[in-house]
Design a protein around this nucleic acid. Structure first.
Length: 513
RNA sequence: GCUGGGUUCGUAUAACGGUUAGUACUCAAGAUUCUCAAUCUUGCAAUGGGAGUUCGAUUCUCCCACCCAGUACCA
């Protein structure tokens, strides 16, 4: 039965800040999973925490996913980039923002109260904190569950009439899940297999808060996944500890037969040391942790892959390989190929340390797969920023010759500025090494041949007379490039032309003789 | 602390009881070239520890160690 349902997965971020690369990977795996099965990928915004809401975060998330080519089927209208608020044939479950669905959760919570699966709690956070510290002082851990709820202030301990009265007159109460006593919850995770947990170690989680009339994550998540007919929940490993609660919630609602399957993804860890990848690691270690630049409320900017010059397809590729493998030795995958190859069976269980070197390698590979034409289009704005105006066809030709030497398009200027402007100075070390009288006198002779008959004739001459090829060519390269690195002399001359060639020879004579 | 999850070269991973433990990134050396880069070749380098099960354990079981996560009226 359940297998016949159309595959529907969701990515449900909380707009409390920019999505970091781990979040993007979670979205990507959901997307790949759905597309592989011809199913739907849904975006739902879980903004039930009014305290931590960050303006702009929602738009950032949508833009980041769009940049990666992760296009939702439902929840976001890609034409406008907005979260859908009005139901339609394409978006039947609108609104997709939980704050706008707030009216619907209370009834579900109360259904649980009526069925004996939940109760009203009137403890203040001060009382709870006091209980926690008191327990800690005795070396125990305070758990709000069957072991303590009988001594706390809730509808299980307070007379019914008083409860009714407090419900009506107060606004600081909550609805808590009534965690069963001494039950072993047996769960199956698509990645981790069979997991069992004793409910005595779990607590009575708050499901609904009267103060802001909003559900907590647990309630909203289960209710919406059910309503939206989600078939698989693919999320980060940090959710594994609350899986028993979620199982029990499905049971309490009587939705066990359509409960989604769960897959808990391994975490993304920082490159060195221990711990998960955090906001600050990137700038500290020189790599982005966010897909796009993000400026926080203090005006600090965090680097994004997009702005740092990564291609979106390279970023998606490298992200896909962090925690998943195709089972073959293939490393380069387009989105279509990823969809084809993806399977949860090949998702690993352990956390993946992010390797910035490998990330760069991916970009390099993608850079050389781009056409010269595409690269030229990306390079031209950079040239313009250096006040260089160059013929488009010329830029295309240059890109073709230099793309194997670069990791990012942004490297092109450093690698190839001499193909657009004459060197303004000459590298001291290289001058010291090559600019010797016995070399440059021969070099000038050869330069004349190059100007007259071309590089090939000049090389022939050098070989015939058994002159030192390297020394001569590097004197000439010094004149053309400003250092002893760069393209072959023949390529440079064919690019800049004989006129410019001679000019640069004259320049170096003026500068160094 | 408690609960859960995890553990193969520095990193990402392959090998789902039988391999000289493979591949990629990084690093080193060599080849090549007029230089640099690229490319090619070679090399360095791993099953956390201990018991068991088995003819045979990276693989299965248990114990220990270590790492991670959760432990909120946050998600």
């Amino acid at each position: 039965m359940a297998d016949e349902r159309r595959t529907r997965v969701r990515f449900a971020p909380s707009p409390t800040g920019p999505l970091h690369m781990g979040g993007v990977r979670t979205a990507l795996y959901n997307y790949l999973y759905a597309k592989k099965r011809g199913g739907d990928f849904i975006i739902r915004i879980e903004d039930t925490d009014s305290q931590r809401f960050v303006p702009g975060a929602e738009a950032y998330i949508i833009e980041a996913l769009a940049w990666c080519g992760i296009i939702p089927d439902e929840g976001v209208d890609m034409a406008t980039g907005k979260v859908v608020e009005e139901a339609s044939a394409k978006h039947p479950h609108a609104p997709y923002r939980q704050s706008q669905r707030r009216g619907l959760y209370r009834a579900y919570a109360e259904q649980l109260v009526n069925a004996g699966w939940a109760y009203y709690a009137f403890d203040s956070s001060e009382e709870l904190n006091a209980a926690r510290t008191a327990a800690e002082a005795e070396g125990r851990t305070f758990i709000y569950n069957a072991s303590t709820r009988g001594q706390l202030r809730n509808s299980l301990t307070i007379p019914e009439t008083e409860v009714k009265n407090m419900l009506d007159t107060r606004t600081d109460w909550t609805i808590r899940f009534r965690m069963p006593e001494g039950r072993i919850v047996a769960m199956d995770d698509m990645i981790r297999g069979h997991v069992e947990v004793n409910t005595d170690t779990l607590d009575d989680k708050v499901l609904w808060k009267r103060a802001d009339e909003l559900p907590t994550y647990h309630l909203a998540n289960i209710v919406d996944d059910h309503l939206m007919e989600i078939t698989e929940v693919i999320r980060g490993e940090e959710w594994l500890p609350s899986l028993p609660l979620h199982y029990l919630l499905y049971e309490a609602f009587g939705w066990t037969d359509t409960m989604p399957r769960f897959a808990h993804l391994p975490l993304l860890l920082k490159p060195v040391g221990n711990g998960k990848l955090s906001k600050r690691d990137g700038d500290k270690m020189g790599f982005p942790v966010f897909p796009l630049n993000w400026k926080n409320s203090e005006g600090e900017t965090y680097h994004g892959y997009r702005e740092d010059g990564y291609f979106p397809d390279a970023f998606v590729n490298l992200l896909a390989m962090l925690g998943w493998n195709p089972g073959t030795e293939q490393e380069i995958f387009s989105m279509e190929q990823l969809i084809e190859a993806f399977s949860v069976e090949h998702v690993s269980k352990s956390g993946a340390k992010f390797n910035p070197d490998k990330a760069k390698w991916y970009n390099k590979e993608y850079l050389r797969m781009k056409s010269d034409e595409q690269l030229a289009t990306l390079f031209e704005p950079i040239l313009a920023s250096h006040d260089v105006r160059a013929d488009h066809d010329y830029v295309v030709k240059v890109c073709g010759l230099i793309k194997e030497r670069a990791t990012f398009v942004a490297d092109f200027w450093d690698i190839a500025s001499y193909l657009f402007v004459a060197p303004a100075s000459y590298n001291e070390k290289d001058v010291a090494k090559f600019w010797k009288e016995e070399n440059y006198t021969l070099a000038f002779e050869i330069a004349d041949i190059i100007a007259g008959k071309g590089v090939e004739a000049a090389e022939e001459q050098i070989r015939e007379r058994q002159w030192p090829m390297g020394k001569i060519m590097n004197c000439i390269r010094l004149a053309l490039v400003g250092s002893s690195s760069g393209l072959g002399i023949a390529d440079i001359v064919s690019l800049i032309g004989v006129g410019e060639f001679s000019k640069r020879i004259e320049n170096i004579k003026k500068a160094l003789l």
